[in-house]
């Protein structure tokens, strides 16, 4: 370690002292997230008919390395179908504590029904609050369970702490 090198190194750190910090003051400032960020799942609908894309085939559950998905399928009522296929998922649950956000479910899905969105603020207090059902993931539901409870308590809108670019797979999700 020569004196010159030390001086050079100290010059470098000194020059950094006067640069603007890169810190994002997160809850107040919105985190900038890449469009391909993998967060909480969305269950999509066909935009034209409004029918659910999910046909209850359980391929996502089979692909999931963390065994986080539970699907139960039921026959569609031909007069008032829930999904576009023969069957639909009567129960569709993902355990967010088990999920490792790998995106395998999204890859496995033949209809593009389950897509990983951008939401990452999933912290909660009780174990069962981490099991997200259809009512928590169907397109149009915004925010994590806790965020929605909190918004209801305060009587306001769900506020998300991030901004992300658009992603074509996320049909009908505008954040």
């Amino acid at each position: 370690m020569s004196i010159l090198n030390v001086a050079k190194g100290m010059g470098v750190t000194l020059s950094h002292l006067f640069k603007k910090p890169v810190t994002v003051q997160y809850p107040e400032e919105k985190a900038q997230i890449q469009a391909r960020f993998r967060g909480r799942h969305h269950l999509l609908r066909h935009p034209d008919t409004g029918l659910e894309k999910c046909i209850g085939c359980s391929l996502c559950a089979a692909a999931c390395p963390a065994y986080a998905i539970y699907v139960e399928a039921a026959e569609n009522d031909p007069d008032d179908p829930t999904s576009a296929g023969e069957r639909y998922a009567s129960i569709y649950e993902i355990n967010m504590l088990r999920c490792i956000f790998c995106g395998f479910c999204e890859e496995a899905c033949p209809t593009g029904a389950v897509v990983l969105g951008h939401e990452f603020e999933l912290a909660d207090f009780r174990y069962d609050h981490f099991v997200y059902g259809k009512e928590d993931m169907l397109v149009g539901v915004k925010g994590s369970k806790w965020q929605r409870r909190e918004a209801e308590r305060k009587g306001g809108e769900v506020e998300l702490g991030f901004q992300a670019g658009p992603r074509p797979e996320l049909e009908g999700v505008d954040y």
Partner: peptide, 10 residues
């Protein structure tokens, strides 16, 4: 605080 500023943090 100062170390933070040296490392581009707050």
């Amino acid at each position: 605080r100062l170390l933070g500023r040296f490392q581009h943090r707050l």
